[in-house]
Design a protein around this nucleic acid. Structure first.
Length: 275
DNA sequence: ACACCCTCCTGGAGGC
DNA sequence: TGCCTCCAGGAGGGTG
């Protein structure tokens, strides 16, 4: 499931491949993958537009188009963007039942949006704020400090984990990196935000930055589905300390890692280290 | 304000 | 082997 490090890895690769390419046509095989506008308009408007920049905001991929418009993509659970150079014209992806949107460029290169679970969405909009308006701060932005995090927590009765998963608070974290962050910070996911002391928030901030930067260096975590535009998996799985490791020993104290449910989602914690 | 539940989806895993 | 059920979860919606 692509979170910030995976999406960032994807756009860094994609940037080299598709910047400057002009869309010749678009094939939509699963209509619901297109959030806005309706499919016919989506295809019609994209034809002839050039991709001038490839960016990211939270977990959204944002392609800047010339002469106008933005194509925003959210990969949700199983979405992938796969780049196919012109030379590989007989690649089986063309007949892959999970490739729901296919972009063909005037260069002959192609970009496949593949999504087995069909949760991913594409938005063609005049202004990207249509999709990014509600998003919280970027956790790796230099302006995102422990003080900013403290302001977010202040007066909040919420549980810590749902707050960190909420994209309106901080943009880019998902289930894996929240669990990893909380373990590294030694904080329990059910703690109420307003009970955290300054030192704990500083630890939380440092842990978040640490976990995300580490995953980014490792090009993301592949548990099952995540792949980059060249279909390569990430290398971060071996760095996970708690996620998916229920029953295994905690690297810090040796106690067994437990799986609990928080906000209807599986959470992995060391009950001894996380208070 | 916040917890909780449901929906969207498919494939992998576990039970028998 | 095969079938059935459960489960994974990002986000948006509704409800209490």
């Amino acid at each position: 499931m692509p979170e910030l490090p995976e999406v960032e890895t994807i756009i860094r690769r994609l940037r080299d491949y598709i910047t400057g390419l002009t869309i010749r046509d678009v094939l939509v095989n699963w209509r619901r993958s297109i959030a806005v506008p309706d499919v016919e308009e989506f295809v019609g408007q994209l034809r002839g537009r050039t991709i001038s920049a490839v960016g990211r905001r939270g977990k959204y991929i944002i392609l800047t188009l010339e002469p106008e418009g933005y194509l925003c993509l959210h990969l949700r659970m199983t979405g992938r963007l796969i780049y196919m150079a012109k030379e590989k014209s007989n690649h089986p992806l063309s007949h892959d039942p999970h490739c729901h949107v296919i972009f063909r460029f005037t260069s002959g290169d192609r970009l496949f949006f593949r999504d087995t679970r069909k949760f991913g969405r594409l938005y063609l909009v005049a202004d990207p704020s249509v999709v990014t308006a509600g998003l919280g701060m970027e956790p790796l932005d230099e302006h995102f400090t422990a003080d900013v995090l403290m302001d977010l927590m202040r007066g909040k009765q919420r549980q810590l984990k749902p707050m960190l998963l909420d994209q309106h608070s901080v943009a880019g974290l998902g289930n894996i990196y929240v669990d990893e962050t909380l373990w590294l910070a030694g904080l329990h996911p059910l703690r109420k935000c307003n009970t955290l002391e300054r030192g704990e928030i500083e630890r939380l901030h440092a842990a978040m930055v640490n976990v995300l930067n580490c995953a980014l260096e490792n090009h993301g975590t592949t548990l099952r589905d995540y792949r980059d535009p060249d279909e390569r998996p990430g290398d971060n799985e071996s760095c996970l300390e708690v996620y998916g490791r229920a029953g295994q020993p905690c690297a810090r104290c040796g106690g067994a890692i437990e799986r609990i449910v928080v906000a209807q989602r599986s959470s992995h914690i060391c009950p001894r280290c996380q208070r």
